[in-house]
Simulated assay, not measured.
Amino acid sequence: MHRMILAGSLLLALSTSAVASQVYKWVDAQGITHFGAQPPEGQQATSVNTSVPKPRPGLPRLDSEQPEPAPSKSTPVGDQKAIDEKVKADVATQEAERRKYCETIRTNLAQLQNNPRLRAEVDGEVRRLSEEERQSRIKDAEKAISENCD
């Protein structure tokens, strides 16, 4: 009897990692963003990080880390829809922040390229950038755009 309980507990503990699935995000030809458990064939999809770190014992919780109420057993489909909506909202927020960052860095790059007499505040003092500093900042901006923007 004890072996059956032990075996059942072990299977239950191992099954939680098998339940966790990967979420993919992709944009179709019409520009609509989609999320799904399987990436579409023939399209590039990015993996969405849905893991939540577990709180460490002994540390005080922040307001944002308060435990969520236990999900209702009566509407599992509704719970999945709520989770899907939360993931979509999180991804949309991250995408909006990325777009804003890209817009800012592109504006900065345009100013760096079009204006050889730029001034910048360095160590609390406003001074003119040397040509080497300007070229270095141009390269940094181009690198940031290539790594983070479409």
Rank of each mutant, 00 (worst) to 15 (best):
M1C: 09
H2T: 15
H2S: 13
M4H: 14
I5N: 03
L6A: 11
L6S: 14
G8N: 13
G8P: 00
S9R: 05
A13H: 04
L14A: 13
S15W: 06
S15H: 01
S15V: 03
A18T: 10
A20I: 02
S21V: 02
V23A: 01
W26S: 06
V27S: 14
D28Q: 11
A29V: 08
G31A: 10
G31T: 07
I32S: 09
Q38I: 04
P40Q: 02
G42L: 07
Q44D: 12
A45G: 04
V48T: 02
T50A: 01
K54D: 15
K54F: 15
K54C: 09
R56W: 05
L59P: 12
S64M: 04
S64E: 12
E68H: 03
A70N: 12
A70K: 09
S74D: 15
V77W: 00
D79Q: 13
E85A: 14
E85W: 10
K86D: 05
A89Y: 00
D90H: 00
V91G: 06
T93M: 13
Q94I: 01
Q94D: 06
E95I: 08
A96Y: 00
R98V: 03
R98G: 10
K100M: 05
Y101D: 09
E103G: 15
E103H: 01
R106P: 12
R106K: 08
T107I: 10
N108G: 02
N108D: 07
L109A: 06
L109H: 06
A110D: 14
Q111L: 07
Q111M: 09
Q111G: 13
Q113R: 02
Q113T: 13
N115L: 01
P116E: 02
P116T: 02
R117W: 02
A120P: 08
E125H: 07
R128S: 12
E131H: 01
E133Y: 12
S136E: 08
S136N: 04
R137F: 08
D140N: 10
K143P: 08
A144N: 12
E147F: 09
N148P: 08
